[in-house]
């Protein structure tokens, strides 16, 4: 899992996190790698948890679910969704190496979020291919 991202790529990724997620009312959005490192993250200024711990848990969780997928003969479950009372978590794979995590509240519908995620992933793929 070797990759390098140059400054332009990082800036472009961050711009998408801002315009497609934070400005749409998502509370927090992170792009991480499968080792649990944070590539880029943004929030609405009201987030009080430690995003590094969240990233470590998300990478582990996604890895565990992928391993389960293999066991039952699936290639992978490419997205995961956890619904809470106030906050929801959505994970989606971006190419083979990265994971997009969004945290959003009641005011954002899952359908809308999924659409945004799908669009953003296409943009990320273009950006990542350029390296």
């Amino acid at each position: 899992m070797e990759y390098t991202l140059d400054q332009k790529q990082l800036d472009e990724i961050e711009a998408i996190l801002q315009s497609d997620f934070i400005e749409m009312g998502v509370h927090c959005v992170l792009m991480i790698d499968m080792a649990g490192n944070i590539i880029s993250s943004l929030d609405n200024g009201e987030v009080s948890f430690d995003i590094y711990s969240l990233a470590a848990l998300a990478a582990g969780n996604f890895g565990a679910v992928s391993a389960m997928a293999n066991m039952v003969g699936e290639n992978e479950f490419s997205l995961l969704f956890h619904k809470g009372q106030d906050e929801n978590l959505h994970f989606s794979r971006v190419t083979g190496e990265f994971l997009l995590i969004t945290i959003f509240g009641k005011e954002t519908s899952l359908g809308f979020l999924r659409l945004k995620v799908a669009e953003a992933i296409k943009k990320f793929e273009t950006i990542l291919q350029s390296s």
């Binding site: 899992m1 070797e2 990759y3 140059d6 400054q7 990082l10 800036d11 790698d33 080792a35 649990g36 490192n37 944070i38 590539i39 590094y52």
Partner: peptide
């Protein structure tokens, strides 16, 4: 592998 952000001058590594 570690993630190095040259702009923010940040390194994250896993031990």
């Amino acid at each position: 592998m570690a993630f190095i952000n040259l702009k923010k001058k940040e390194v994250q590594a896993k031990i």
